[in-house]
Amino acid sequence: MSAADYLDALRLRRELTAALDGVMQGADLLLTAISLDVAPVAAVGAEPTAWPLQASPFNVTGHPAMSVPAGFGRGGMPLAVQIVGRPFDEETVLRAGHVLERAFARDETKEKNEETSA
């Protein structure tokens, strides 16, 4: 990578961060999809780096973000959402993650009862 390309990347990073900071002025959190589809079936030779994850912008800007399981899609494959917060506000992201995790939690008691009654 040339020095010019590196400096251009740093400039673009600053612009992306400023744009997201502007969006976050009007919101405590953003809730986004972490993936554009259900999780792919694991296979020999699968390339996880090729899966379309939506975390990249926040990895670049440094905004705190976490993904939380959010139920199941086609074929029973897991789905997830992503919570994004303001810079240095990890506490709010973690609290929201806890709320969503509880909201999307499977009822393990019901599942155990269904397993034993079958």
Rank of each mutant, 00 (worst) to 15 (best):
M1G: 15
Y6M: 08
D8M: 10
R11V: 05
R14Q: 10
A18R: 02
A19D: 15
D21V: 05
D21C: 10
M24W: 01
Q25F: 12
A27K: 11
A27R: 08
D28M: 03
L29R: 00
L31R: 03
A33P: 12
S35G: 14
V38R: 02
V38Q: 01
A39I: 06
A39T: 07
V41S: 03
V41T: 09
A43W: 11
T49L: 12
A50P: 00
P52S: 02
Q54F: 08
A55E: 02
P57M: 05
N59I: 00
N59S: 06
T61K: 02
P64E: 08
A65Q: 05
A65S: 13
M66A: 08
S67N: 15
V68M: 06
V68T: 07
P69W: 06
G71A: 00
G71Y: 04
F72K: 04
G73V: 03
R74K: 07
G75E: 05
G76S: 07
M77K: 00
L79Y: 00
L79T: 01
V81G: 15
Q82T: 03
V84E: 01
G85N: 13
P87F: 03
P87T: 04
F88W: 15
D89I: 09
D89K: 13
V93I: 03
V99K: 02
R102N: 08
A103V: 11
R106H: 12
D107G: 06
E108D: 15
E108W: 11
T109C: 02
K112R: 15
K112I: 15
E114V: 09
E114F: 06
